[in-house]
Design a protein around this nucleic acid. Sequence first.
DNA 1: GTACATTACTTTAGGGTGTAAGGAGTCGGC
DNA 2: GCCGACTCCTTACACCCTAAAGTAATGTAC
Lengths: 262, 262
Amino acid sequence: MVVFAGQGDARRSMELLWGPRVVAPRTGPGPKPGLSVEAIVAAAVDIADAEGMAALSMRSVGERLGRTAMALYTYVPGKTELVDLMYDRTLGELPSSFSTSDGWRPAALALADALWDLHLRHPWLLQVSPARPVLGPGEFHVQETLLSVLAATGLPLWRVRWVVAALFNIVRGSVQAAAESRQAATETGQSEEDWWFARSALLGELVPDLAARFPTVAKLGPSVEESDEPYLEREARLSFEAGVELLLDGVEAAIVKASGPR
Amino acid sequence: MVVFAGQGDARRSMELLWGPRVVAPRTGPGPKPGLSVEAIVAAAVDIADAEGMAALSMRSVGERLGRTAMALYTYVPGKTELVDLMYDRTLGELPSSFSTSDGWRPAALALADALWDLHLRHPWLLQVSPARPVLGPGEFHVQETLLSVLAATGLPLWRVRWVVAALFNIVRGSVQAAAESRQAATETGQSEEDWWFARSALLGELVPDLAARFPTVAKLGPSVEESDEPYLEREARLSFEAGVELLLDGVEAAIVKASGPR
DNA sequence: GTACATTACTTTAGGGTGTAAGGAGTCGGC
DNA sequence: GCCGACTCCTTACACCCTAAAGTAATGTAC
């Protein structure tokens, strides 16, 4: 795996990404196709959503569609391209209407929120995108939405690009923490607090001088408090909100600096 | 893979992470160990550095040490734990001396820079850490360093934690872009510009209405300019610097807001 | 109506992965 | 000198992706 597509494969990939999603029925000879690229991608996304990326194999996708793994190769060049399609199609789900009529800041917050939701609904996105840019319509859609909302800051576009990148990274990072804690909880059957508690006890036992070696971390105190809600997930959410606020404050400062000394 | 360690395994993992790195030679019977956990981890890191995470297998690590894959299981419970060790040991390489005597901002910048370097030297870190927290000494070391530097802002520690998370995410995201572009270049043999140029041509051909559908993205213009240096990598570096500056501006605003209305 | 080209899908096979199980060989302590 | 502990190896299994070849179904041309 991790094969960087060559020249010919690149064309095929791009055609799949950008081509029409509903293909006109063929006229020539041969049996009618029983599947479609979109059906395959949808099945793959379902699996990844429900059982995680580790459960996604050509076999499992084929099985869910009542075919063998090899049947998929009629529609999709390989697993790499399938994952690219999953990724791009899912990014395309991001809503696009974020009105900046109340100013850019509420719009940016709403957009960040939508990105958070999208990634939490499809946590496998976070394991995929480390790959190179896919350059599909979904990716363009996300970039366009981010750029157009933050262009309302009035900053020059080449600066907006940095803002977009930073915002995107903050969202991705914090939602990753949330998704992980959720996954760990379901996967081990252990509640977050139990897991954390067991780990803390182990740490205290094996590393008695922890507080001395990492005083500042220790000062944060035992991070688990009484709460009914999943703790780590709420923590990640707070980190997300605070991080976005910090960044947007920075953007505001940049706006003032740019237009202030007029 | 992606197995969340159970109770017993958790103890073993933590012992490996926190235990002494130079094990005292055994006294009992049996042949002397020819390997060591540290040697295995070092070999694994070498492979990941040189050939990427995809080339890292128990077989390849064993081979590099002149053993079979199964020999490693004498020292390490499984691949998951090996990767955790690689991750944590490598994080431990982050320098720790960042003087805040000139103020917190230069220290934070230097620290961000060190993090950037570390990740660019070991790009596979970015594919690993998506996993749950490892809770090893390296991870604590990084947290401690980040927290202690940013505690110099004077903000309450629970707020510093958000800053740390945001900063870390920005660094990780932008260094990922840099690492990817570098990897893509070496992997395909194609220069970044060639790759980008081919992709752009393909896009223009397959999606003639690209500029109409994504006007803001299009306004950014063809991103490739004349330059001898790797373009995308420099772009990622700029994005990193700008993102960090934005965030630190936000932090400054937060400091003013907290202490200003005194 | 029949032959042919075309296509969907299956079977088989080959080379990869992680790791469980059991067997060799080596050494210290009795 | 032998026992038991220990390292390391061989074998084996289940799973992965996918190349190649075979089978069955379909539409078109004669």
